[in-house]
Structure formats: C-alpha cells, structure tokens
Amino acid sequence: MNCDTYAEWLSAQLDGELEAEHLTELNAHLATCESCRKTQRIMRGLAAEIQGLPRLAPTDRSTLAINVAIHQLAPKPRRVDFGPVMDIEELAEFLLVSLETVGHYLDDLPSFELGGKLLFRRTSVERWIESREHGVQSVESFDRMPAEDEFGRITVNHP
C-alpha cells in the first residue's frame, strides 16, 4: 500500500464511503506519515478553496449570438386562430401538411377564386375532412353541395 492509495482512502473517508475494514489501517498509517496528514488537512479545506474558484462569464457578444440562434431555431407555435376564409398557405397549416400535399389534393378540395386568388372556406374544408373520415357518415355528399356565393364572383372548383 502506498500514500497514493491512502490518499484515495482519505477522500472516501471524507465522504463517509470508506469501508470499515480499511479505517484501522488508514488511521495506523496516518499516525506515522506526516505527508498523508498534510494531504488530509488540505483535503478538508479543499471544498472551501473550490468555492473560491473564479466563475467566468461568456462575453456579451457570445451570449447575444446564442440568443439570436435560439430565436432562429425556435419551433413555430402551432396556429389555431384560422379565419373563415384561408389562402393556400393557411390551408396547409390548418391541415398540418406541406404546400406540396395541398397541391396534390387541389382538384378535390373545396375552393373558390376571388381576384385571381385561390381561397378556401374553413367550414367547407371541415366538411371535406368529415367526408374523408373513416367511420363517419357525412350529412351530405360533398359533391352535391351548392357553391358558396357570398364572396361575389365564385368559381366552383371541386369536381
């Protein structure tokens, strides 16, 4: 056994983790070894010395760069406040799909044109969703629904 091992035992003893069978041997060694008694004294004061270690801060520039990155990478909160009429981007958000997917179903989705812009009535889209739901009986077949006319010049777009 050498002083390196006894120093490890001193550390374990300080934390109450030294096995009882080693304690007698450690005390016997401490009685004869000035070097290990000194190590023990230093170890007892180490926690206080560690408390005094400098705590440095990252620069303001670095902190700012991280804050900017956080905002750039932040997930967009899910939108729930859709109005009665949606454009195609809002529809994609409403349906939780990509614009490409909306494009794929465009002939099937209830829509109308106004001022050259393709628009979607939320209630019509909700009925369209209902008609596609498994196990749900539609109140009315979507294909037979009348076109909406409260927005002026409406082009019925569904088949």
Partner: peptide, 16 residues
C-alpha cells in the same frame, strides 16, 4: 466515485 476519490487524492497530494 472511484474516479472522483482518485482525482481528489491526486490533487491534494500535489497541493501538499
């Protein structure tokens, strides 16, 4: 725990 006691022992031996 073993690594910690070894590290603290080594540190205090050097300080001593």
């Amino acid at each position: 725990r073993t690594h910690f006691h070894r590290a603290r022992a080594q540190l205090c031996r050097v300080l001593a």
